[in-house]
Amino acid sequence: MTRAVCPGSFDPPTLGHLDIFARASAMFDEVTVAVLVNPGKNGLFSIPDRLELLRAVTSPWPNIRIDSFSGLLVEYCAAGGITTIVKGLRGVSDFDYEIQMAQMNRSLTGVDTLFLPTAPQHAFVSSSLVKQVASYGGDVSAFLPPVVLAAVQATVAPRDR
Rank of each mutant, 00 (worst) to 15 (best):
T2E: 14
R3Y: 09
V5E: 12
V5I: 12
C6S: 09
C6W: 08
C6F: 15
C6I: 15
P7S: 06
P7F: 07
G8D: 03
S9K: 06
S9G: 05
D11E: 12
P13A: 11
G16D: 07
L18S: 12
I20V: 15
I20Y: 13
I20L: 15
F21R: 11
A24W: 12
A24L: 13
F28P: 12
E30F: 05
V33S: 13
A34K: 13
V37Q: 10
P39C: 06
G40A: 04
N42R: 15
N42K: 15
G43I: 13
L44R: 05
S46P: 00
S46W: 05
R50G: 11
L51Y: 09
L53Y: 05
L53K: 14
R55I: 06
A56C: 09
A56F: 00
V57H: 09
S59P: 00
S59L: 07
P60M: 04
P62L: 13
P62A: 14
P62K: 12
P62G: 08
N63W: 01
I64Q: 02
I64M: 03
R65Y: 02
I66V: 15
I66L: 01
F69V: 01
G71T: 03
L72H: 01
L73T: 02
L73K: 02
V74S: 01
E75A: 09
Y76K: 02
A78W: 08
G81Y: 12
I82C: 13
T83C: 05
T83I: 09
I85L: 11
V86A: 01
K87F: 05
K87T: 05
G88M: 11
L89R: 07
L89Y: 08
L89N: 09
R90Q: 01
R90Y: 02
R90A: 01
G91M: 04
G91N: 15
G91F: 04
G91K: 04
D94Q: 02
F95G: 07
D96M: 07
Y97V: 09
Y97C: 06
I99C: 10
I99N: 10
Q100E: 15
Q100Y: 04
A102Q: 12
Q103N: 14
N105S: 03
N105V: 01
R106F: 13
S107A: 15
L108Q: 06
G110K: 04
D112I: 10
T113R: 07
T113V: 03
T113H: 09
L114R: 13
L114P: 11
L116H: 09
P117M: 10
P120W: 01
P120H: 02
H122I: 00
H122E: 00
A123M: 00
V125T: 13
S126G: 01
S126K: 01
S128H: 00
S128E: 00
S128I: 03
S128T: 12
V130H: 09
V130G: 11
V130K: 13
V133F: 08
S135A: 15
S135E: 09
D139M: 14
D139V: 14
S141I: 10
S141A: 14
A142P: 08
A142I: 03
L144P: 11
P145F: 04
P145Q: 07
P146W: 04
V147L: 12
V147C: 08
V147N: 08
L149Q: 02
A150L: 12
A151T: 04
A151W: 07
V152G: 09
Q153M: 10
Q153P: 10
V156S: 07
P158Q: 06
P158W: 07
R159D: 05
D160R: 15
D160F: 11
D160N: 14
D160M: 10
